[in-house]
Design a protein around this nucleic acid. Sequence first.
DNA 1: AGCCTCTAAATTATCGATAAAATGAGACGG
DNA 2: CCGTCTCATTTTATCGATAATTTAGAGGCT
Lengths: 223, 223
Amino acid sequence: MQTLDDISEDEIEHDDLSIARALEEDIIFGRLAPGTRLTEDTLLARFHVTRHFARQAIVQLETMGIVVRERNKGATVRSLTPRQVQEIYDVRELLQRQAALWIPLPAPDELIAELTALHEEHGRNVEAGYLRGVHETNDKFHLTLFSACGNSHLVQSIELYMRLSLPVRANSMSSKESLRISHEHHRLMIEMLKGRDNWVLAQLCVDHLQPSKKRYLAYVSEN
Amino acid sequence: MQTLDDISEDEIEHDDLSIARALEEDIIFGRLAPGTRLTEDTLLARFHVTRHFARQAIVQLETMGIVVRERNKGATVRSLTPRQVQEIYDVRELLQRQAALWIPLPAPDELIAELTALHEEHGRNVEAGYLRGVHETNDKFHLTLFSACGNSHLVQSIELYMRLSLPVRANSMSSKESLRISHEHHRLMIEMLKGRDNWVLAQLCVDHLQPSKKRYLAYVSEN
DNA sequence: AGCCTCTAAATTATCGATAAAATGAGACGG
DNA sequence: CCGTCTCATTTTATCGATAATTTAGAGGCT
């Protein structure tokens, strides 16, 4: 497996937020396995920033929930037990279902157009095998969709739980087939937005979460 | 109104967490009005800590959601628009209702005993007019209750939203009558835990939130 | 008076250095 | 051979000082 030291990030100027984002990406692409230790010095060497920023980035990651810190012992990439995964997904389902139920239907053309654009970009990324783009457009699609519920706090919480489930979703990025299925789900969601049935939309949003959860739970149970 | 400088905190040793807690208390008791500016130097003088800790405490408060920071401009106590209050309470109701529904009924005697103890302490605090204690035992009561749902992540989110609604709940601390009503609600909840009807319990938990929300919204609408 | 500009004061952001704590390796005694 | 005690090394926590930014107000111009 690739270690943290093999990844170098010269030339780019980093602040604590961009470091956090870079590491977030490493986690979803499996370059950083859960449990990996994250020392300040390593970040310092990789990103060529002062200790201050490396430290701040770790704090960021901690509040984002993707890293765990122990006093005087530093940070490790959070690793999730099946139990925790189940808990996180139960809450995700709760939040996303309610957001879907609160979206006024039929949705305005403006929103449909925006989502369609994201959807097409997502499709192109899938076919091109450009995983970074897939992840980015996927998250943007869902956040845009759920924002239509009108409750920004709910959306924020949804975002939090999307990040918490990052390591779970990492698995599903590897197979183009599952990405295509996910893409198809998105198309259906857009169709539903044109209709009037919130319950169908909500169910779709919940079902959409199942594959990566099941895949992950199956994966850990056989190891 | 009392300003931040009037409050002094000698003798006690503070770290960033205890500072955050102290300020949290100031907010719920109305000593720190929403919108109040929070400069590092002020905290520094009040708590006799280094700049480092004062700063860290502010970051803490930011992630707890009770303070807003703007780059190069410092922090102010978060002030909530009626719209935001409504959003926060909608999510609170969603989370707490679901937690109540997930609690296995009837609850084990152990839990009943623990809650009863907290309930009695809460009652004593109310009658003694010891507001700090009221707030503390109140939050502890609810967190203990909701923990019984078995989903620690859900409980964490509930805790987050309890903090977000701190300025809203501040109002209700002032009248002993409303504290007594709240206390009575708690008693009913314990009764419900002995039964088998999750729906009644859930409804009770949701209703319990209404008074302080309504009071706050009424208050801001007439100003 | 109204308005722009420039300066000084206040405040936050960043840095490099030092202190404190944990970790691991090797020495020593049982 | 095993435990454990000490010390060197690694890593995080804390500090004080300096840099950068914003804010407010004085002074001058039209």
